[in-house]
Amino acid sequence: MPSALGIGYPAKSSGGNGHLGSVHIIAAIAAIVMAGQAAAQPQDASPAPVPPSAAPPAASPTDALRLPAKTLVDIEITQALDSKTAKSGDRFTLRLASPIVVAGQTLVPAGVVGEGEVVHAAKARFGGKAGELVLAARFVDCGAVRVPLGYFKFGAAGENRPGTALAASMVVPFAGLLIAGGEMRVVPGARANAKVRSDVQFTEGAVPACAPPVEVQPQPDGGIS
């Protein structure tokens, strides 16, 4: 094969057609590969040369323990909500459905609990007005560290419903949402997603201390385990 490609054959300024053809082919291959890589660059990218003195500093060890704002998180609502009975300001429980991983390290494990709040609730009414629920995620607690949340949206993050509003939508109901008798109901286990509202800096000791609560299982004989 190398002989077919001409690789390994020494280039000669003169000589038979075979050697000159090999050189030309090698040059053509190199040009094609370089053209392909150049085409892969975005058209408007024009990186300026960075002088050594302006190079960014190496990442510090604490960067790996920093949870950046706007990190997308998967959450699960753990209590039932109903537009008929909910009121603005009511709090509800939620938990992290997937761990939050930054730079390969799990900063917040799945299962940690937190709270959300009902922003708006309205009962179904005569005349065709359906029940309404507008919810917000407030935080999850990771040991002594509170992770503030915002940008609540129904639907798991993996479902990728870009541009959808934070409110329960009558038009496109999500899994975990029921529309019964005109009222909007959220069942326990309904998935939603939110974003970290502001940077959170963990310490070395905070990460292992953050563990989801252990569920107590009642024994048949009345004891607990």
Partner: peptide
Amino acid sequence: DETYFVKCNIGMGLVAGGANLSPSDREA
């Protein structure tokens, strides 16, 4: 940096009806 959608419907009423605001979404 987020966009929200609010739909206005005219609902039936006992006398004249009225406008209702409801949360909506981009798709709608």
